[in-house]
């Protein structure tokens, strides 16, 4: 009989972070240690309920002995590891990653933390020139081929919002290609695989098969992609419409945790309520029942308490 080690107490290893020597559990990532120590580390493609994706490269740190910077989200600590988070190299990379994203993507709906990091790291997306105009069909670009630029405008991913169903929209002008949605739709939660990265390089984008509409795809509308999207590229139709109408009031939002009324699994729901009405549903990523992931009924099935007869 094989043995499963459960909650076994792991060995401690010694790491040095910015000159401080620490004893931390073996198997922790550098990011785990930094968070534990309260060292703020920007992240975009990392989420507590997903395996490290390691694509955005904003959480980079210096590790002694490594020629290049190291992603703190994915790299596990080794005994004797010496980590630096406050070097010029680190700050430069973080600034540039944020700047490159901001110069090519609409980051205005990313979290307040992201907005703050952009200020703190001194991001200046305008220095790449005025943005190139939005394009109707970025999906048709062929891998390995692109239109040679003259440099007068900065290429970007501006494009129209995709609204093709009643539950959620895809606003890929805001997509930073962090792959979180792909992981949530795939092997980190839902295993539906309705979306994948398609295309290559700067033309890579998140797509259903043949860049089709969601109702023609394998999508089962669990909305776990929305749950992990860091930039507002994926959001509920309700939120999209409220924002469009200027009726979006995050400052007045309350969040109440309760239990889903469908089926017997007992998923924790966080009901986001604005002005007396549920606008979004999420789930806590640290709960053992859901790990932050829901199904279509849990995420979108609340409407029955709001479909009130005309007074």
């Amino acid at each position: 009989m094989t043995t499963v080690l459960l909650g076994s107490i792991s060995r401690l290893v010694t790491v040095t972070v910015d000159g401080r020597e620490l004893r931390v559990p073996e198997g922790s990532t550098i990011l785990d240690v930094l968070r534990e120590q309260g060292v703020e580390t920007p992240t975009l493609c990392w989420a507590p309920n997903l395996t490290p994706i390691n694509a955005c490269r904003v959480c980079m740190v210096e590790v002694e002995g490594s020629r290049v910077l190291v992603p703190s989200c994915a790299r596990k600590v080794d005994d004797g590891m010496v980590v630096r988070t406050d070097t010029e190299k680190v700050r430069h990379s973080r600034r540039m990653v944020l700047e490159l994203l901001a110069s090519s993507t609409d980051m205005t709906q990313a979290s307040a933390d992201v907005q703050r990091w952009m200020v703190e790291y001194g991001v200046d997306p305008d220095r790449y020139g005025p943005p190139a105009p939005a394009e109707e069909d970025r999906a048709g670009r062929r891998p390995g081929h692109h239109h040679v630029p003259d440099g007068s405008t900065a290429a970007n991913v501006a494009q129209p919002v995709k609204v093709d169903n009643d539950l959620y929209v895809r606003d890929y002008a805001r997509c930073i290609l962090c792959y979180k949605c792909v992981k949530a739709c795939g092997t980190d939660a839902q295993f539906t695989f309705a979306i994948s990265a398609a295309g290559r390089g700067f033309d890579a984008h998140i797509a259903t098969e043949y860049d089709g509409e969601l109702p023609d795809s394998a999508c089962v509308y669990c909305g776990n992609c929305i749950g992990v999207c860091p930039t507002g590229a994926l959001k509920s139709v309700r939120e999209h419409e409220l924002r469009e109408d200027g009726d979006w009031h995050p400052e007045s939002e309350t969040v109440t945790t309760t239990i889903c009324s469908f089926c017997g699994v007992g998923c924790n729901l966080e009901l986001h309520v604005q002005q007396g009405s549920i606008v979004n549903v999420t789930s806590p990523s640290d709960h053992s029942v859901t790990h932050g992931h829901l199904c279509i009924k849990g995420r979108f099935g609340f409407q029955h308490v709001q479909n009130l007869p005309e007074a």
Partner: peptide, 9 residues
């Protein structure tokens, strides 16, 4: 309950 929302499926 589930009749209350519009499922694309």
């Amino acid at each position: 309950q589930s009749g209350g929302y519009s499922s694309p499926m």
